[in-house]
Amino acid sequence: MSRVPSPPPPAEMSSGPVAESWCYTQIKVVKFSYMWTINNFSFCREEMGEVIKSSTFSSGANDKLKWCLRVNPKGLDEESKDYLSLYLLLVSCPKSEVRAKFKFSILNAKGEETKAMESQRAYRFVQGKDWGFKKFIRRDFLLDEANGLLPDDKLTLFCEVSVVQDSVNISGQNTMNMVKVPECRLADELGGLWENSRFTDCCLCVAGQEFQAHKAILAARSPVFSAMFEHEMEESKKNRVEINDVEPEVFKEMMCFIYTGKAPNLDKMADDLLAAADKYALERLKVMCEDALCSNLSVENAAEILILADLHSADQLKTQAVDFINYHASDVLETSGWKSMVVSHPHLVAEAYRSLASAQCPFLGPPRKRLKQS
């Protein structure tokens, strides 16, 4: 649940008159999402009104509101027999009622949201009550392989729920002597030191190019640089560091992050930047690179990204790559990247197969709970 924001200063709310007192009302909304995959969808019983329910879910471990999704594969009634019906059901509720908006969509073979439908307002739910769409999607369109909505005969539904909580009022009075504290510009100011090479005390040599930097900042941000300058190493004695395995453009992006906490060109060089972040123990930059690479996972590059993640101990990226390969196994196994990995990294192939087997055979063990970014 997000923290209630402070109200904007009255002088910034309007260029008009300023009242002596004010009130700011925040209506709290808890948002969460749920993904439900139905394997072997074409084998569902086709009687009209037949119901399939998901397991229950909530916004978190401490949330007492429990929900589930309900599907009628062949419609709810005679009117909707040519459609799939989809509903959000409130299973248990400690209150007399709650209000919530919802959005349903289908994830296609690429994991993209399609055929989205959402409620136009927050509906009133009581325990045992459901709301949804009797005519969510035509069955003939859903079952047509050309539309790519049932890869490997799996129907994957994605649901986003927004639950309306209580409202909170914050009130106060205006004073004539309003003090406005300026925003912190530390990142910009440190970035200026790097860009202008002011007050530098060490030189970093990268592929024949020299960059002036500040030992204190490098040591504070990177345990690797800290070790170089702290001990009686040649880098500490000469205040000069030779860097041979990072390209200059990648190095500059890494230094921008060290000084400012930002990497504006990360998406263009996420793979190389991940390697640099791993070498210099820049954990936050490493996770930022993992996130960017996750966003660009595809059938063509899944094997290469899995190898990269394994090489640099990028655990979150590795998990996402394995899950992606499992979901698109029939396509990924035909790529040149996968065939190369079979020869060069057989242990990763074995890991992917083990994960695929456990996903398809849940009876082999208890269900695993899916539970950071600093």
Rank of each mutant, 00 (worst) to 15 (best):
S2V: 08
V4K: 10
V4H: 06
P7D: 08
P8T: 05
P8V: 05
A11D: 13
M13P: 07
M13S: 03
S14Y: 13
V18T: 13
S21Y: 03
Y24I: 10
T25N: 00
K28Y: 14
S33M: 14
W36D: 00
F43N: 10
E46V: 03
E46G: 04
E46M: 12
S58I: 03
N62A: 09
D63H: 15
R70A: 09
V71Q: 13
K74N: 08
G75R: 13
E78C: 11
L86N: 13
L90S: 04
V91R: 04
C93I: 12
P94H: 14
K101E: 11
F102R: 00
K103L: 15
S105I: 05
N108P: 09
T114D: 14
Q120L: 04
R121M: 09
R124G: 14
Q127W: 07
G128Q: 14
D130Q: 12
D130P: 04
F133Y: 12
K134T: 10
R138K: 12
R138G: 09
D140M: 01
L149T: 04
D153A: 06
K154P: 07
K154Q: 12
F158T: 12
C159P: 00
V161K: 00
S162Q: 12
D166C: 09
D166H: 15
V168Q: 09
N169V: 02
N169L: 03
T175N: 05
M176S: 03
E183D: 03
E183T: 04
A187E: 05
G191P: 11
G192S: 11
R198S: 15
D201E: 11
D201K: 00
C202M: 13
Q212R: 12
Q212N: 11
L218I: 06
A219L: 15
M228T: 11
H231R: 09
H231I: 15
E235V: 02
R240Q: 05
P248G: 09
V250M: 02
E253Q: 09
M255L: 02
I258T: 01
L274C: 01
K279R: 06
Y280S: 01
A281K: 02
D291G: 05
D291N: 04
L293W: 08
C294S: 04
E300L: 12
A302T: 08
I307E: 13
A309D: 01
A309K: 00
D310A: 02
S313A: 08
D315I: 11
L317G: 01
Q320A: 01
Q320S: 07
F324Q: 01
Y327V: 11
D331V: 09
S336M: 13
V343A: 10
H345E: 04
S355I: 13
S355M: 10
A357P: 09
Q360F: 08
C361Q: 14
P367E: 15
L371R: 12
Q373S: 15
